[in-house]
Amino acid sequence: MEPVTRPLASLGRATIGSIAGFGYAGMLLAESFWFALVGWRRGQPVRIASIAAEMRRIGVDALPIVGMLSLTIGIMLGIQFVAALKEFGAQSQVVLAVAKSVTREFGALITAILVAGRSGSALAARIGSMTVSQEVDALNVIGIEPVRYLVAPALIAMLVMLPALTIFADTLAILGAALYSAPALNVTPLAYIMNTMALLEPGDIWQGVAKSVVFAILITLIGCSTGFGVTGGAEGVGRATTRAVVLSICYIIVADMIFSFFLNR
């Protein structure tokens, strides 16, 4: 019997574990919003100063790397679309292809993956090492709810900064594409950008921004819940950090696919 029951038991344990994980993340989300809305009335205010500090860490500090990579990806898309569409003699469609793919897809995706690597891992590492060194317990016994002190500011900051970074990435990617494609298409970069503006619809931008809001929630919740779940000292913190990044990126890509499916039917 054992060869049959053993895998079944471990499958059962894994299933229960992941359901518990979802439940825990859901609770973190609900509690964060609760503390943000009514915490100040219950003596558990979410401080503006800590939200601002998180916004700087998550958003402002990420500007150079997000800017550089989106510019590069814009140039890369320019190269690919010019080459691919030339075969059909449809170079004039390059502007449209770049504009739609960047705003709907690449801007949000690249930004989210970068922020997951920078800030999702940092959240997991910070909360993980605080859990290991009993700092989370200390917050608890002082009377500071760890969720309102550690999770809520990060979540609010992420919800503001990830969409903002996405729009920033959209802009720079289109600029990058213009730098390469405009000469290839025999137009000025300014004309290329004007053409892009004319072709883009608000819905395209919204699609990317809406995705980035979902990605923001995913990155924060996965980072924080893996951090709180750390056991086993410094090695555990390392494992949690890796796990947070890998899980975040997986969920981001799957969520992106689901979103794209429903928004483009």
Binding site: S129, M130, S133, Q134, E135, D137, A138, L139, N140, V141, I142, G143
Partner: peptide, 15 residues
């Protein structure tokens, strides 16, 4: 919790 104070083994100061 306002009325109790705790000093943990490792200190647990926020680093």
């Amino acid at each position: 919790r306002r009325k109790i104070g705790v000093s943990f083994q490792g200190g647990a100061l926020l680093t």
